[in-house]
Design a protein around this nucleic acid. Structure first.
Lengths: 160, 160
DNA sequence: GATGAAACGCAACCGAC
DNA sequence: GTCGGTTGCGTTTCATC
């Protein structure tokens, strides 16, 4: 088991650029960080291999696809033992769920999801919450505006 | 002003594939949706131009970069008139904030963010919340586990 | 070990059909 | 939507430090 070297400032600058736009040509990136295209390419491959870059994804506009309603749902359950958590994690990881966090506080889970209309959500709530005997209660927060929706990790490149 | 044609099942299948992995070669995508590479290429360009694809981003692992703590914060403010909202939206859209939603319910905003340690968050909370006279209260939910963290829009391709 | 310059081969792109 | 030609890209090589 070999350990990955810690990313230097070049790597951090690349990560910062790529999480804004991973379709930039190597030439462009090379110019920004003042390295050759070959070096940039090697570093990106290494960052992928070592897990710093988890995926390369297209960000799709939900509204364009009719998913005009965004909801946040706080869920409180009865039991959170291992077997229960396995079931809950699976139940809350379906494709209709954008994000799922287990949290501290009154609620045990925080979900974020988008739906085309409320009747879709009603059916989903029936299946995920009402039909699950382990769910004690859930509170639905309707999103009025998606002010910022990224997964960007703040990276201090030293040169802003 | 010309209107974009509604995406057909081919486009939906492409969007679904691309939001999982946008580094797939056209050849691969063409095989999946049973089209030629040229058609796929034209469709992707069109999807970008018409805004269905908002961005192409690398997903960076926060933990690998020392951002080991994820937090959700509910924020309640006093005034939400236009001028106030402008200020709040800007305040809650900084690079340290991953996501910001304005919501219904007890709280007015829901934030999601990652930090390296709690003292960083403490400073952030001071600046964003305590120092903002418009913030009535905020409730911090500590994330125990990031069970699912995507921006994927659920797409019914008809062929799962 | 990592780098940069230049060669290679393949994929994306853009017309014509 | 399909077919080729061309461009431009990512990739590999290799000499260098």
């Amino acid at each position: 088991m070999k350990k990955d070297p810690a990313p230097d400032s070049f790597d951090l600058a690349l990560l910062d650029a790529l999480q804004q736009d991973n379709s930039l040509p190597l030439r462009e990136l090379a110019g920004r960080v003042h390295l050759s295209t070959a070096s940039v390419q090697r570093r990106i491959q290494q960052l992928k291999k070592s897990g710093y870059i988890q995926a390369n994804t297209a960000v799709v506009d939900p509204e364009k696809l009719g998913q005009v309603i965004t909801l946040a749902v706080e869920v409180r359950v009865d039991r959170t033992q291992t077997a229960d958590m396995v079931q809950l994690r699976q139940a809350f990881s379906g494709p209709e769920i954008q994000q799922c966090y287990s949290i501290t506080g009154d609620a045990d889970f925080l979900l974020v999801l988008t739906v085309a209309n409320m009747s879709v959500f009603q059916q989903l709530a029936q299946r995920l919450f009402h039909d699950n005997p382990n769910v004690k209660w859930f509170r639905t927060l309707v999103v009025l505006e998606r002010i910022k929706t990224t997964l960007h990790v703040p990276i201090d490149t030293g040169t802003p």
